[in-house]
Write a protein that binds this DNA or RNA. Sequence first.
DNA 1: CTTGACCTTCCCAGCGTGGGAAGCACCATA
DNA 2: TATGGTGCTTCCCACGCTGGGAAGGTCAAG
Lengths: 149, 149
Amino acid sequence: MNIGEASAATGVSAKMIRHYEQTGLIRPALRSGAGYRVYGDGDVHDLRFIRRARDLGFSTAQMGQLMKLWRDRSRASSDVKAVALAHIVELEAKMRALQEMTRALRHLAEHCHGDARPHCPIIEDLSAAGATPADEGRKALGKGFEVLR
Amino acid sequence: MNIGEASAATGVSAKMIRHYEQTGLIRPALRSGAGYRVYGDGDVHDLRFIRRARDLGFSTAQMGQLMKLWRDRSRASSDVKAVALAHIVELEAKMRALQEMTRALRHLAEHCHGDARPHCPIIEDLSAAGATPADEGRKALGKGFEVLR
DNA sequence: CTTGACCTTCCCAGCGTGGGAAGCACCATA
DNA sequence: TATGGTGCTTCCCACGCTGGGAAGGTCAAG
């Protein structure tokens, strides 16, 4: 199987497959005589695993952990659960941050007439903000949020 | 006012202030004889505006729009509201995506014993994923999510 | 054999933010 | 006044994830 076929079969772009290989998340693929990467069923399985984990918002680092646990047949399910729970905690923190932002924004929008006149509480709130607002949300959305692209 | 003082007064790091200047979000600061950036009340106001908008999760592009509207005293409040509402829609899409991820993950975690044995539905789900799962979440979390760092 | 689709590697971009180096400017205290 | 510490300047690099694109080799079908 070519990288293109593997990509089509797993939903992971060829670009990303090469990237994952280069960063060590997956083993280097076998090569054909011409240097083409060759994938087998096992590799496709790995890529689907990655794809699914990515869909669940895991970071590459977390995917690495999960892959390792996956391959380790003597793993303790508590180890896997720990990774998952840690991730849930992260996701929840991000959601809370987003919720707070939405809440604030919706509140402002509700009080904005949205007509042709210039008066607008949204702009006013932004420009009249206190000295150093706590930055509640954004900091909770720490590293690993990019993953969700 | 120095860049350091402006930073302390607004909660925007000196690094980011230079960055915003370089990328055109704010006007180039005046310079002292020695080449130091010099900030006045107006600049501080601008930076606080940015800071606040950033806290609300606006992207730099959106902040640019808002700054423009802010400066335009003849703006229509509907324009501002449009930007805000568009952003709310984005935030909500992202929240939904995160919620879906959390839901799925929590479901899996609930069924994992979390003991010393290797059997674990989380790992099994990841490895048994269908051919090309719809990638519901992640794609909704499109561009502009990084902003939320 | 030509053509088009596919593969290879390599570099560059973006988002927002921070780290750090090298070198100059400034201020307070000894 | 000399000196040190702090703060400023510019410039480059990194993260995480993803895509774009160039230059060149390969393969299968017409």
